[in-house]
Design a protein around this nucleic acid. Sequence first.
DNA 1: TTGAAGATGATT
DNA 2: ATCATCTTCAAG
Length: 174
Amino acid sequence: MNNRLDHTFFCRDSLVIAPEILGKVMVRVLPDGTRICVPVTEVEVYRGMEDLACHASKGKTKRNQVMFGPGGYIYMYLVYGMHWMLNIVAGEEGNPEALLIRGAGEISGPGLVTRYLKLGGDFYGENLTTSNRIWLENAQSINRFSTSPRIGINYAGEPWVSIPWRFRAITAFV
DNA sequence: TTGAAGATGATT
DNA sequence: ATCATCTTCAAG
């Protein structure tokens, strides 16, 4: 009974994955063996070189290179000098897309999610389909969700600031 | 080598 | 509305 989501789930268009990943269960095993299981409740899609809000839009760099690989890997990065962001790489190899995890369980906010799950830079490049310390398990997806523009990306300009690529589970249905 | 700008969160 | 805090990347 292996319930873990595999590459067939992650190696698809991020816009297809986004609504489906809501409600899937993130499992984190701490060094002491403690297991934290929380459903994903909010994500944002960063999709391809043309998306000026996506870190991959300026080309491949040491920091964003994992996004250019196949889906199912973790892209971690630090913002504002203090908050680690957890992203799940999506799509086929060569197609830089990722889902920023903005909410999980009762936690709201991408920086708080990584703090709660004890995730940092050492998770950069982690393979979600084989890792023994973090993965996603299948569960019924949330079929009630809302979409809205992404947060904190005003620098990207139109149409990227307005495009509704933020997907939130409606709390009452989580 | 340097500097400006962040995919935020807590506080005023 | 402001600030903490520091890596990344592009410019010089």
